[in-house]
């Protein structure tokens, strides 16, 4: 059995450390050579981000993994998988994703003719500012670079102005004041040198955790025998999903250490950004904006009974209720 697998961003640690070894070595070995894998990534194929899952559903490849949020054009209800600010640590984020799993399974089956196999996190999308900030409230009136619809709406509700700048131009934009703040993974910001051009780090998941969904074409999945299905699922759960989640919190702490000099740093030299600790007031403020504006807005976009289902699952897991 040869599987054609399309991985997520080839340059990021999730692909290099987990996806690539799992699909090219772990799984073929565990299957005793029964499963062979041809691995590429969506950026190497130059796929449109919104096309990755729809093409999976049409059987253009067997397995695809990418940020669930990229597919919300075709499935607005999927935005509920990755809500900014509701999970401030990896354990909570994992709980939220597990609570959302049945909904995600259903969305992928219906919208993309695909079987969800695993959901793993990217590092949380935190805030780099080249401006004095002490709390979430201080983002009001600032120009902020972020991506994704729900994050943009959250910033809008906060009184910040969303600015579109591509990732590679962020350092220049921060330096020249084109943007005051920018959102990305702490590790990406560290390796791209954002600490050179920004002063304050607010390590809260303003852009959410960008969960990466691994899914298989449904026809392909149904064509596999039960043993193979079980093998793939158990291998993914124990040797891909679990380690990716287990190291997420540590990686965040390490990246914050590297950027601020407070704490350990194993990835390189320590830098000295000012660490802005999120206070309870910040979280309360975020929850207030989410429940009063951003999430009701989403519930309307998603339609159906998604609001109730979200409240009963993800909402219950993190203690947030959409009115």
């Amino acid at each position: 059995e040869t599987l054609s697998v399309v991985g997520s961003w080839s340059g990021l640690p999730l692909h290099k450390e987990y996806e690539a070894p799992f699909w090219s070595e772990t799984l073929p070995a565990a299957s005793g050579g029964k499963i062979e894998v041809e691995l590429t990534t969506h950026n190497q194929m130059n796929l449109g981000l919104g096309d990755i899952y729809p093409l999976l559903g049409q059987g253009v490849y067997d397995v695809a993994m990418t940020v669930g949020d990229y597919a919300v054009s075709d499935a607005p209800e999927l935005e509920g998988l990755d809500v900014p600010m509701i999970a401030t640590d990896a354990a909570t984020a994992r709980k939220a994703v597990e609570a959302a799993r049945p909904m995600v399974d259903e969305i992928f089956a219906e919208r993309f003719n695909s079987k969800v196999l695993a959901i793993a996190p990217y590092p949380p999308q935190v805030v780099f500012c080249n401006a004095e900030i002490a709390s979430l409230d201080d983002l009001a009136g600032k120009k902020v670079r972020a991506s994704g619809r729900m994050t943009a709406k959250f910033l809008e509700a906060l009184g910040a102005e969303g600015v579109n700048v591509s990732f590679s131009e962020v350092p220049g934009a921060l330096q020249k004041g084109v943007v005051d703040c920018a959102v990305t993974g702490a590790g990406s910001g560290y390796s791209a040198g954002w600490w050179e051009v920004s002063t304050h780090l607010l390590p809260i998941p303003l852009g959410g955790w960008d969960p990466v969904v691994t899914a298989m074409n449904m026809d392909k999945w149904n064509g596999l025998d039960a043993d193979t299905q079980a093998l793939i699922q158990s291998e993914l759960a124990t040797k891909f999903e679990a380690p990716a989640w287990d190291t997420a919190q540590g990686a965040l702490a390490n990246d914050i250490g590297c950027l601020t000099g407070q704490g350990d740093c194993t990835s390189g030299d320590k830098r000295s950004m000012t660490l802005v600790e999120a206070s309870d007031a910040d979280i309360a403020k975020a929850t207030e904006i989410l429940t009063s504006e951003v999430l009701p807005d989403w519930a309307e976009r998603a339609g159906g009974d998604w609001k109730d289902r979200w409240n009963a699952s993800v909402g219950a897991a993190v203690g947030v209720t959409i009115e």
Partner: peptide, 18 residues
């Protein structure tokens, strides 16, 4: 390729010109 890549034709035309 053993896959129906041609199904991606329209998507590629759209995403490369958009």
């Amino acid at each position: 390729s053993s896959f129906p890549l041609i199904r991606g034709l329209g998507n590629m035309v759209w995403s490369s010109s958009n």
